[in-house]
């Protein structure tokens, strides 16, 4: 079966454009980023706005938008350049621009945590995070949890305990519980309950999520 991501263009058209004031000019961007002629070569090399460029901005300000500009995102251990507008959320950058549709957008308001990803191993709502605020951070999504060869023990435990029904909350639930296991190898059921207190599951699979997470904690401790 072909990878569905292959059918998604690497750089899709912006969702909407404001013609007339669309986009930042390349010159304006470079000026704002404080890059000189020498810096231009650097930018061509890294292909996008980075935390280094942010740190080097001459007066502590980089201005861009409302049109798209290239930015550098670090996702699942790899560097990606995406052309995004300032209003693009991290969830949109991941799903639409990078084709990583494992992250689900459900409420789009930070209420349900279905869109949970890690920013430097800290679970956050990607729907309420602007993609530009992920620059300079390590983003981990559900696609980055397992490798081709080895399923993450928590995902194996979710399968074993049948910890899902419709599955829509599952990627967020897994990312939340995996983040808990990263910082607490000995969670109690209370700890798991507390960790997922923002993750809504309308099917009501919570008891199995708790069991799967506690089971995976044991597996990881014995690994």
């Amino acid at each position: 079966m072909p990878d569905p991501r292959e059918s998604i263009p690497a750089s899709p058209p912006a969702l909407t454009t404001d013609s007339g004031k669309s986009g930042i000019s390349r010159r304006g961007f470079l000026k704002g980023a404080g890059l000189t002629a020498a810096g231009t070569a650097l930018l061509d090399g890294v292909q996008g706005f980075t935390s280094e460029a942010r740190a080097q901005s001459p007066h502590g300000v980089t201005e861009f938008g409302p049109g798209a500009i290239p930015v550098r995102l670090h996702v699942n251990g790899a560097e990606h350049t995406v052309e995004i507008e300032p209003r693009t959320t991290l969830a949109e950058a991941l799903r639409i621009h990078l084709g990583m549709t494992g992250t689900k957008v459900v409420c789009d308001r930070g209420v349900c945590s279905g869109c949970t990803v890690w920013l430097d191993k800290m679970p956050v709502n990607s729907c309420m995070t602007l993609a530009i605020d992920a620059i300079g951070h390590h983003v981990t999504t559900i696609e980055g949890l397992s490798t081709e060869e080895k399923i993450h023990p928590l995902q194996a435990a979710f399968v074993k305990h049948d910890a899902m029904q419709c599955g829509f909350c599952t990627p967020g639930m897994v990312m939340t519980c995996a983040a808990l296991l990263e910082r607490n190898p000995h969670p109690s059921e209370h700890d798991v309950r507390h960790a997922v207190s923002g993750n809504l599951c309308r099917c009501g699979t919570y008891p199995k999520v708790f069991a799967a997470t506690l089971d995976a904690a044991g597996t990881l401790r014995n690994a």
Partner: peptide, 26 residues
């Protein structure tokens, strides 16, 4: 969400200098 431009700041002085023309702090 509506389209907007952004002034991405790294210092307080930079941020204060950008607070004009109905700019909203994020």
């Amino acid at each position: 969400m509506n389209s907007f431009s952004i002034a991405d700041c790294t210092t307080v002085d930079a941020a204060l200098s950008q607070l004009k023309d109905d700019a909203v702090v994020k």
